[in-house]
Design a protein around this nucleic acid. Structure first.
Lengths: 338, 338
DNA sequence: GAGCGGACGTTATACGTAAAACTTCCGGCG
DNA sequence: CGCCGGAAGTTTTACGTATAACGTCCGCTC
């Protein structure tokens, strides 16, 4: 009596179909072959449909001791890059019956709040971008299976890592600009403490430094158009010979650099070649379109999820970085004479 | 014996502290006053700390019949707008002990897959953007408390709605352009079946139509720079007098319009004024910077979450649209003579 | 000296599911 | 005839938590 408004349970379905709760679980869990007759199974399925039955996930998770849910920890979602990572991860996850919960470290909520307090769901594992640095300590506290994205393979003790081949991307940028004849470089670096940015600086210095008569100056800025504008302005109007090539750690920084160049009366690419890294929508919205390194965010997410699945199943994730590709557009050209 | 590697439970803590499981639950749940002595309570807390105890959320959710987790359903996260919505919603949620799980309908996963299959977490409620139209039917199937964002207050039977005052934003755009002297308008509309875009078209037609001697032509494009470029190109090179003002439903469309104008040799704003809507980072990356309507995404998310909390507590969400603001930048100017 | 109420706990139970272990019925085989 | 094995279920249990309901013990009051 008075079943009222509460959600139907497997027991309600059992009663409606005239069987035991166990039978319902067997049928709906597709484990009934040889245990329940076809006619009874159909009766159960019908009752479930009629009642609009949906299994209680909390109960199932408790019973099974796993949730088929993983957490993706990313920095604040201010570009479409991590949206792509999510999409790729979610696609692979769905193929394996997993769900992905997103935890974008929300600025302003306070760094002390750890991801697990927020993503209340019980979790089977975690994929974390190294850029979400503040959240990491909290994560390591738990013993959850962990995959790190874009993180130092040496430094992330034990955790599997999946990386984009940023080193190769920077190499391609450097060689492209060197081939064009550039010798004086300015590196507009992201002021974010993350391994992936250290790699950029290191590789650029190495490649350019290998050629005699070159120089690289570095200036740092937080990843925002306005900050990049300010930093690039200052650097470009500094005394001494002006750099002819500006290598940015990120497309957003490049957008700021465009504005700085414009204010200083420098034309891109005639007076200054500019490169980015990411290939966001922004890159083709700029005028001229930005020469940049395309990162396949979805593929990145897919690999991350596959690695986590491997860890969960006790396998070893396959190694190997994800290739990236230089996309040459209108923002790079040979340096003007002089 | 052999407690091994499995996560400690409240029973383990109880054993370590020499009390019953119930006592542990009382202490850790902060309900022990008058039930457990201070010294015993401290002993329990210490044991919990030593063992690294974390309550099993699946069990708690099952016991309590609620999860303090809500789902935020958004269209694919290709701009920072919904990142802002998430941030606002998550902030308010955190203040009330809730978590927010994000479900960006991932393109390519297939529309049939409903959010609940993916976000395996059990949920207390849902906040859904009307732009994620394909997911909505699945949602209505469940009887979860629902708040709709940017949705027709008439059409969304029963569900509470929280809206940005888009109508007012479009009004401001229209009056700004009319004040500048524009009479021939082109409306670059988002080709997305959503109420929020219908509103834009309706209000623009009404405001401009109220002034004699005006005209509005409309052309639609999916929200992508390339599609906008194509649509705007075609419309701007059509026969007849060229429009002097191009009103875009979205900043991304405006970015496409800039490229179209450039290819046709039209200068912004001298030959063509352009407006957007959103105020993404993109808006200030463009040259000239885009006159657009600033939507406060975080505030939007906050209001959405507050409305859902109200519904969950049986209160009536407060009504009232969220104000928006026209930001005049360099992309609008009086039409050139002739 | 009976009784009462607070302090300090414990025992028992329920949440909804999955699955192991058990029952019952029957047809067939040696 | 005795027995075995498979089909078709059912009964029971466990997952980890929160909390209602129940015990003590002790100091006080009347």
């Amino acid at each position: 009596m008075a079943r009222g408004s509460t959600r139907p349970t497997s027991r309600d379905v059992a009663q409606a179909a005239g069987v035991s709760q166990a039978a319902v679980s067997l049928v709906l869990g597709d484990k009934w072959r040889g245990r329940v007759s076809e006619t009874t199974a159909e009766r159960v399925r019908e009752a479930a449909r009629d009642l609009g039955y949906r299994p209680n996930l909390a109960a199932r998770n408790l019973r099974l001791g796993r949730t088929r849910t993983v957490l993706l920890v990313v920095p604040a979602l201010t570009t479409e890059f991590f949206a792509g990572v999510y999409t790729g991860a979610a696609r692979v996850a769905a193929d394996h019956g997993f769900g992905v919960v997103l935890y974008p470290s929300p600025e302003g909520i306070g760094p002390a709040r750890d991801p697990f307090a927020s993503a209340q769901a019980a979790l089977d594992g975690v994929i974390a971008s190294s850029m979400a640095a503040d959240a990491l300590t909290a994560i390591r506290g738990d013993q959850l299976p962990l995959v790190m994205l874009d993180s130092d393979p040496e430094g992330s003790l034990g955790a599997a890592t999946v990386n984009l081949d940023i080193t190769d991307g920077v190499r391609q940028v450097a060689e492209h600009l060197l081939d064009l004849g550039h010798r004086r470089f300015l590196h507009l670096a992201a002021d974010v403490p993350s391994w992936t940015f250290e790699v950029r600086a290191r590789e650029l210095a190495a490649r350019v430094g290998a050629v005699p008569g070159t120089s690289v100056r570095t200036v740092r800025a937080p990843i925002s158009i306005d900050d990049a504008l300010a930093a690039a302005s200052a650097a470009l109007s500094a005394p001494g010979p002006r750099p002819t090539a500006l290598v940015c750690d990120d497309d957003k920084l490049a957008a700021g650099a465009y504005k700085a160049a414009r204010r200083l009366g420098l034309r891109v690419p005639d007076d200054l070649s500019v490169t980015g890294l990411d290939d966001l929508a922004l890159a083709t919205a700029l005028d001229p379109e930005l020469t940049t390194v395309r990162l396949d965010a979805e593929l990145f997410g897919e690999h991350g999820m596959r690695a986590l699945l491997a860890v969960l199943e006790g396998r070893t994730p396959e190694a190997g970085d994800i290739p990236v590709e230089l996309v040459v557009r209108g923002s790079t050209a040979p340096p003007s004479a002089s």
